[in-house]
Design a binder for these strands. Structure first.
Lengths: 233, 233
DNA sequence: CTGTATCAATAAATCAGACAAATACAAATC
DNA sequence: GATTTGTATTTGTCTGATTTATTGATACAG
């Protein structure tokens, strides 16, 4: 288990209010309905302070607690990212984050080529083996899990905590693809080949090769999402 | 003015505790000194909740509020970034963020080439004019201001809020360079030329050119910082 | 009519004290 | 030695009162 079984009232109200705001149920400018929401003032105030620190609301005397415009939100905060996927602009979110991946991941791969530890080499290979053995639709969840492992380990292997801090953004795209039924019935074999190419480049210290291969992966994933999306939104 | 003149006890205690933790004065694992720090329990609790949301501490019953290891921190949060510059690892911070800039800014420049508005074109040019007219040491502050404008506008022009959200990280490097006396006595004329090149590429929609030029700027800045740093740290 | 000073209403900010609940640690029990 | 039980501790939650800053209206002066 990751954490305790009991979630506190605080966590619960942050989650509820945060999701309502980010998903658009409470529009910017409107005052936050500070009453009738389970919990006492302390719980509510502490929650509001957290939402304030995420840039979602601003409390002002004599004005009330108002929802801030989207431009003020800490859109890279893991919670905000995940809440955004439950709103209307799922598609915009995919586009934003895909472009971010395109900037981050190739450079991370390049850095990893000169910094990854032997343990990380092994973990990357293990992730690919896992992916290869679960390509079929029935194993969607497990495939996703290995895919996520691969990308997280690579960001970690970049040796730069700033890249690792962006892993939530990267991984949410991968998860979102599965959650929102944007996966083809059989994983693209070309994708696995590219993942293997990244690892072999990283292992032999070929930074430019790793960068290039990773860029191909991200572009390929992005296109796949766009293709699957056109009919719906 | 950006905000009010009076800072609340809450803001004050978040600032004090946050800086103490991030700068290393309170080491990970140790319990937070929950007493003798002006303010009542509510103020302290609300502050702790904010620090908790930044990944700096974790409150547990019967254990206390303990400082989390660095790996848990939201190191991309603007406050954490700025607090980090007051600690020992100023140099590591520069390196981390420079690598991040190297990933972000060239791609942002490329995107801006196809998305920047005429107003943004104008603002970018204005920033460069400002830089050119304040190259001398005496105008360090103003030069920095124009330089920051340039980079912020470019991230904004990328049309991707995720890049804009990283502007704090980018701009802190530029500011840090001036604050920590890492600027040469006269701004590098080559730097200004490269900034001009970025704008001209953006204006004519040359994405690859803009990307390349921006990469040169970041690399150049990074080298400049490393050179100035070697003697001290 | 314009700008300025005063004032009341209001909502957050702060304080203070109490009780509830979980849990690490130790002691008692089997 | 393993398991249960107890207890002290620390955060979680609740509630009431008081203080402070700020808005908007109102009155006043230029």
């Amino acid at each position: 288990m990751t954490s305790s079984k009991h979630i506190s009232l605080h966590e619960r109200s942050v989650e509820i209010l945060g999701r309502q705001i980010v998903s658009g149920k409470i529009s910017p400018g409107s005052a936050l309905d500070t009453e009738h929401l389970g919990g006492s003032r302390s719980v509510l105030r502490e929650s509001i302070r957290v939402l304030e620190s995420l840039g979602l609301v601003k409390a002002q005397r004599k004005v009330g607690t108002v929802v801030l415009p989207e431009s003020e939100w800490n859109i890279l905060d893991p919670r905000v990212i995940s809440w955004r996927f439950s709103g209307q602009d799922k598609m915009r979110q995919f586009r934003y984050l895909s472009e971010l991946r395109l900037a981050i991941e190739p450079v991370a791969a390049k850095l990893a080529s000169s910094r990854a530890t032997p343990e990380q080499h092994g973990a990357l290979t293990a992730a690919i083996v896992g992916m290869a053995s679960t390509q079929r639709l029935a194993n969607r969840e497990e495939y996703l899990s290995h895919d996520r492992d691969f990308h997280r380990i690579l960001l970690e292997a970049s040796g730069n905590p700033a890249f690792l801090a962006l892993s939530t953004a990267v991984l949410e795209v991968l998860s979102g693809r599965t959650t929102h039924e944007l996966m083809p019935s059989v994983a693209n074999p070309e994708a696995i080949r590219l993942h293997e190419l990244v690892v072999s480049c990283v292992r032999r210290g070929d930074g430019d090769g790793a960068e290039q291969a990773m860029r191909s992966i991200v572009v390929e994933t992005d296109h796949a999402i766009q293709d699957q999306m056109q009919p719906s939104d």
